[in-house]
């Protein structure tokens, strides 16, 4: 799992140009992990590289749906929060996420100012299910 997270984080950072602001990534993961002319850094592509199970491809809401396997405490794949935090805040990724892209908590989280609850940004997957793709 650590391998997964370590690959995802730099991929995200490579893709994003300039300073990351909260408003730039309203849907969190999928707002950053996108395909460009230079690179396809969508999560489904990265899943393939790291030999993640097909469950990742089938996940509709990212990262909300990841909790099927990566729930805190009881997730069979390990807690997603720990995986993502590690991958974004440990070296050598740390230098890019923080220093180069000014990434911080609000890149992935947002504050509900009415309830005082810190939430996780989420969005619909930005890839097509492989089984539905034209061969």
């Amino acid at each position: 799992m650590m391998r997964v997270a370590r690959i995802l984080a730099p991929a995200l950072l490579t893709l994003t140009g300039g300073i990351a602001l909260a408003d730039d990534y309203p849907q969190g993961c999928v707002s950053c992990h996108v395909a460009t002319e230079q690179q396809d850094m969508r999560l489904n592509v990265i899943f393939d590289h790291i030999e993640h199970s097909m469950a990742g491809q089938r996940t509709l809401l990212i990262p909300t749906g990841c909790a099927r396997c990566h729930a805190d405490e009881k997730g069979v794949g390990g807690a997603l929060s720990k995986l993502i935090h590690r991958s974004h805040y440990t070296d050598p990724v740390q230098k890019k996420f923080i220093n180069e892209f000014n990434g911080d908590c609000v890149s992935c989280h947002k504050m509900d100012t009415d309830t005082g609850q810190a939430e996780i940004r989420s969005g619909k997957r930005n890839w097509q299910l492989r089984i539905l793709s034209a061969k």
Partner: peptide, 16 residues
């Protein structure tokens, strides 16, 4: 309004 004023990241553990 920085989260990091009150929170710190334990990077190895992956916990805020």
């Amino acid at each position: 309004g920085k989260c990091a004023n009150c929170h710190a990241m334990d990077a190895p553990a992956g916990e805020a």
